[in-house]
């Protein structure tokens, strides 16, 4: 039910690992990934991440839902690399992208936003001396995550309203009302944040 890879409660090892550790792991995986250059390495990376999903108690359906939105991107990338560098290069690149995306999704599926935000806030703590407010950054991060489904919902409303009036899909006729609604939403959200004491 959660197409956006939001947190799913659980008790497994991936759930129990500290959020900071999982974030570090993601950074490390990203850094290591540039050294991959054999198809078997790409395949092992994907298998390792799939192992993480199993550990966390998620099935292949969950895995597929994380990848599905990317199919349109991965297909052309694969073709591009097959043509330019052969299937081996394509396999390496696909393995790399797939494993990183799946890893990031696994981290969000097994980590509460609050815990992730807390980890980021702690990591940014030292930047206080140069004037960064880590709590603010953390709040922005949480708001960003929360806003994705809201904006998706607004986009659906705009599209439905246009269909109801028989308007054909022109990008501008879609974008303008969506931007207007999003700005109105942001304005209302700002009021709510103030009312809930955010500028305390």
């Amino acid at each position: 039910m959660s197409p956006l890879g939001l947190y799913r409660p659980g008790d497994s090892l991936p759930h129990r690992l500290p959020a900071g550790f999982k974030l570090l792991l993601m950074v490390a995986a990203g850094a290591t990934s540039v050294f991959l250059d054999h198809p078997w390495q790409g395949a092992s990376a994907v298998l390792a991440v799939l192992g993480g999903y199993l550990l966390a108690g998620f099935g292949l359906g969950t895995v597929w839902r994380q990848v599905r939105p990317l199919v349109w991107v991965l297909g052309p990338i694969a073709v591009f690399h097959v043509v330019l560098g052969g299937w081996e290069q394509a396999a390496v690149v696909l393995g790399l992208v797939l494993s990183l995306v799946l890893l990031a999704a696994l981290v969000t599926l097994t980590t509460r936003t609050t815990d992730m935000v807390d980890a980021v806030v702690r990591a940014l703590g030292p930047l206080r001396v140069v004037g960064v407010n880590p709590e603010r950054v953390g709040l922005l991060l949480a708001l960003g995550i929360r806003s994705v489904p809201v904006v998706v919902g607004l986009a659906q409303e705009v599209r439905d309203a246009q269909r109801a009036r028989g308007l054909t899909a022109s990008p501008r006729a879609f974008a303008v009302p969506l931007v207007v609604r999003s700005l109105r939403h942001a304005d209302a959200l700002g009021d709510a944040l103030v009312a809930r004491g955010v500028d305390d």
Binding site: L6, Y7, R112, T113, T114, L139, A142, L143, I145, R146, V150, G153, H185, A188, L189, D191, A192, L193, V194, A195, R196, G197, D199, D200
Partner: peptide, 25 residues
């Protein structure tokens, strides 16, 4: 600040008031 602590405010559009991704958060 003190006034806002005493006076809670609930708006019309619930989506614009919920600032965290999950209920408990």
């Amino acid at each position: 600040r003190e006034v806002r602590r005493r006076v809670g405010f609930c708006f019309t559009d619930p989506d614009a008031q919920i600032v965290m991704p999950t209920v408990a958060e």
